[in-house]
């Protein structure tokens, strides 16, 4: 099971991800509410996986992914995207994000995506 950092400016989404993944045995080790916090918390907590929202204040999720991967090339980041963000998802994947999950979240899909991403990272 993995230590997970959740990065999303919406408390609603952070709680929803937490509620989906904790019963699977994952531990939420931190929550970031903007891209700057995400980068700082990654460095501090060294989680196994990050769920990263794309649209966040101060620093976007895309910029945060690039910053994390610049210093931690093996970091596992899964993007959280919404309808109409296909171009941004592609940019994040090209920057090194491993996969993406789409809002509104389907619990089974979130669990399966994280499982697949963590298995590939092993």
């Amino acid at each position: 099971m993995a230590r997970v950092l959740i990065a999303d400016d919406a408390s609603f989404m952070r709680q929803m991800i937490r509620e989906i993944i904790e019963p699977e045995g994952h531990e939420v080790v931190g929550e970031a509410t903007n891209g700057i916090e995400a980068v700082d918390l990654y460095k501090e907590l060294q989680p196994d996986l990050v769920t990263m929202d794309i649209v966040m204040p101060k620093r976007s999720g895309i910029d945060a992914v690039k910053a994390i991967l610049a210093n931690h090339p093996t970091a596992c980041v899964v993007m959280c995207s919404a309808l109409g963000q296909e171009t941004l998802v592609m940019e994040a994947l090209q920057a090194g994000a491993r996969d993406f999950i789409v809002k509104p979240f389907k619990p089974d899909n979130v669990i399966a995506t994280l499982k697949k991403t963590l298995e590939k990272a092993d």
Partner: peptide
């Protein structure tokens, strides 16, 4: 305004409030 509308859209879609999701989108 862009970020707030985006956030309302995502929450509304998660709860099935389709008219809210459509307008905020």
């Amino acid at each position: 305004i862009f970020r707030m509308a985006h956030s309302i859209k995502s929450m509304a879609a998660s709860l099935g409030y389709d008219p809210v999701a459509e307008l905020s989108h």
